[in-house]
Design a protein around this nucleic acid. Structure first.
Lengths: 215, 215
DNA sequence: TCAGGAATGGACTTGCCAGTCCATTTTTTC
DNA sequence: GAAAAAATGGACTGGCAAGTCCATTCCTGA
């Protein structure tokens, strides 16, 4: 793969997207290169031309593709967690995103297969988590700096806990099909933040810290 | 498998345990029946004798085995979440359990492979989660009924959020190798509970003289 | 002790699927 | 417009791993 013409790049992208869709339908283990070949209208040689490392390299590319999508699907909310309304909108966007995705999380299964095997896949996930958590932490820090939450809360710890709740909520959704846990995790975390508000700020937010849900 | 002699039952159990151990080392996808056969000193025919449904049936049995272990590993703490000390001990036990397990969670990978495929595996996980959450909720309810936390908190929601945090923390550990997120999730959830305590109970808890309250 | 069922051994079949290879077509470049 | 490079087609291989089958040994109960 010395150089890549426009046509070549398009084919490569088509393969990744098609593989991603196929994996969503069949799961990683059940997806064969022939399935991908058929859906993307490519030949075996093309698959290996664009991904000389074979199946693993393709899967890694798909993981990268999916990881990017996870973050963009949360925009513009994730990048602007300024006031409570923004947090609420983000919360809804996250729930909606995963509800729409259904009971298959390509990235989860993808990394559970590649995770231990290749350090590359591990890096993709680690980087995604790091970025995601950093964005959340920035939002929390903003809440703190504007006096909306207790100054005693550590933004990074809160963000880590929130991210864990989201991950677990999604994971449970994969097994049960319900987003109840994801919602509980998000709502409880937000309630925690709201309840920590200094009296003045809480009065301003006024809508009931315990009720948590959209006041 | 009309009847099962003592010897047969022992062999069956040996296969499940050996398969479980092998999967922990190699991961689900990389584990072949021959690997299991070799480790458990059995023959191909034995594998299919005790698990006529083949690989999938064996994997399901392993999932059941692992699911049971998840809960027993948390005992006796999980069954007696009465006061803050008990909660703290449980928290430590959970962290320790997963730290010891390392970056391979057999159940996670097991179900991510069987999850979508077989309804049986899904049932195993769902039941595990249900049971786990119920135990946590019982503990939360006890805290509430003894006035240690705000009566406004819904035990089931809190338990769901906490369980999601644990699951996510473990999941992140699989990718990063660190239990930081798991600990953040647990600690944040417990901090939330403690912070919700009515003033009297919080003061009492701080001093450790719990017996005196509510006379 | 012997008969029938359970347990075991292990060779063999079968099918799939990743990866290879070379021929052919298309595009780029000078 | 011709050579070089890139893209494509698709048959073929090789190996692996699940599952089958039958022969043999072991156990149990009457």
């Amino acid at each position: 793969m010395a150089t890549l013409t426009a046509k070549g790049a398009a084919t490569r992208a088509r393969i990744i997207e098609g593989a991603s869709a196929t994996i969503r339908e069949l799961g990683v283990t059940a997806t064969t290169l022939d399935d991908i070949r058929e859906r993307t209208r490519t030949s075996k040689s093309q698959l290996f031309h664009y991904f000389p490392g074979g199946r693993d390299e393709l899967l890694l590319a798909v993981a990268r593709f999916e990881a990017a999508r996870v973050l963009t699907d949360q925009q513009p909310h994730l990048g602007a967690l300024t006031d409570w309304d923004a947090w609420s909108a983000w919360r809804d966007a996250v729930v909606e995103r995963y509800r729409r995705q259904g009971t298959r999380c390509p990235l989860h299964t993808l990394t559970s297969q590649l995770g231990g095997t290749s350090p590359g896949a591990q890096a993709v996930v680690t980087e995604l988590l790091r970025h995601w958590q950093a964005e959340i932490a920035t939002g929390v820090r903003h809440l703190r700096d504007t006096g909306r939450i207790s100054p005693g809360l550590d933004p990074d710890t809160v963000a880590a806990a929130l991210l864990a709740g989201i991950q677990g909520g999604v994971h449970i959704q994969m097994a049960t099909g319900s987003t109840a846990h994801l919602e509980a995790a998000l709502d409880t975390a937000l309630a925690h933040l709201r309840a920590s508000a200094p009296d003045l700020a809480r009065d301003t937010a006024r809508s009931g810290a315990l009720a948590a849900r959209d006041g």
